[in-house]
Design a protein around this nucleic acid. Structure first.
Lengths: 203, 203
DNA sequence: GTCTATATTGCGATAGAC
DNA sequence: GTCTATCGCAATATAGAC
């Protein structure tokens, strides 16, 4: 419309790209949803692909939240994992289209994700593995952990809840699992699973 | 070529659909890869969509392996989870295109996946949750587990290894995580995480 | 900045010869 | 069963008026 057609295009493209994928949505649909003319897509973003990349970029920037929070203060190892789960829960709750949009990118990464992996995801990985190492050193966690595997499976546990959402309703029918319960369980099971058990316990 | 152009089309379509997705590959590409004429796609499968569904159907049938194995014998609860991890590892190793092909379907399920969820995945879920319940009853596992959450996060841990493969190489660079190590860690951490700890321990 | 109208391309499907 | 040739359609991108 009058004010900021560019932002309007960017916003209304989110559910369309998420639900139908890049190829199954036309520039006419995108323009119609935004209430503007389809020629404006090329005008503002160069091409349909340009609009798509702008959408993905904006979505990925939401992942920076974890990085931002952890770099502020020194945290107890267990608290780092709790913060990760809480941040992911908040991100997906605030932005329900994140999962569909970004996980398509994860399966077939483009250059846009390449950069993001190098610059941001690497840091997330380092933060989590540093927390594990510190916990091992302090005697909280088992000394024989495979750190890389543990970080990866932790991320898998947390994120699978959102990823499995479309299929879950079909498998579980009525009994929906609450996101908060799920996150509590991941934290409980993961921390209990990596905790040192023999001599001097710490909670 | 001469013998079984249909099977040839089906086989060569796997990497193309996996790598590029349904919309980004044309019937001409599919035909060229199979060494046959593009008209044969309609002849054998009715349409490009028909070929795609035949490919997905064949891939999903690989998941039946777990169902088949568990229904044969009564297993110790922990052994059910070990069997699940081993079966998934074998499936993905034998068929490296499985993850890309099927996870795209998982994000935006079609009718083809609807049926599969109802008929097969539901059974997988029931098998895993029955194992958890049995373990709780026998005192091996913590009595206060949220069973549905635990089953889900277990599946997430195991499958995230394959899902994260494309992005992992970009984040971790040289240090690749071996699939066997990863599976061992999921089993160790998950079982330790759900194991009863106070009074009478087992294992 | 925003629109209409159109140029151009590439697609899936199929009719019909062999 | 397999091919060639082609039809008809829908898509993106853009030139040019306002």
């Amino acid at each position: 419309m009058d004010i900021d057609s560019k932002e309007q295009l960017l916003q209304s493209a989110i559910p369309l790209f998420a639900d139908y994928g890049f190829d199954k949505v036309s520039i006419r649909q995108l323009a119609k949803a935004a209430g503007v003319n389809s020629a404006l897509i090329s005008y503002y973003f160069g091409s349909k692909q340009g609009l798509y990349q702008a959408v993905i970029n904006k979505q990925l920037s939401g992942l920076m939240a974890f990085t931002a929070k952890t770099s502020q203060t020194a945290l107890d190892p267990a608290a780092v994992f709790r913060l990760y789960a809480a941040t992911m829960l908040e991100l997906h709750t605030k932005n329900p289209y994140f999962i569909k949009l970004c996980y398509r990118e994860f399966i077939t990464p483009s250059v846009i994700l390449d950069d993001f992996a190098q610059n941001h995801l690497k840091f997330v990985f380092l933060t989590l593995s540093a927390a594990l190492r510190q916990g091992i050193k302090s005697g909280q966690f088992k000394p024989d952990l495979d750190i890389n595997s543990a970080v990866l499976l932790w991320a898998g546990m947390v994120n699978f809840y959102f990823f499995s959402q479309p299929i879950r309703s079909r498998v579980l029918a009525e009994k929906e699992i609450s996101a908060q319960n799920y996150m509590d369980q991941t934290i409980t099971i993961f921390l209990a699973g990596i905790q040192r058990r023999d001599s001097h316990d710490k909670e």
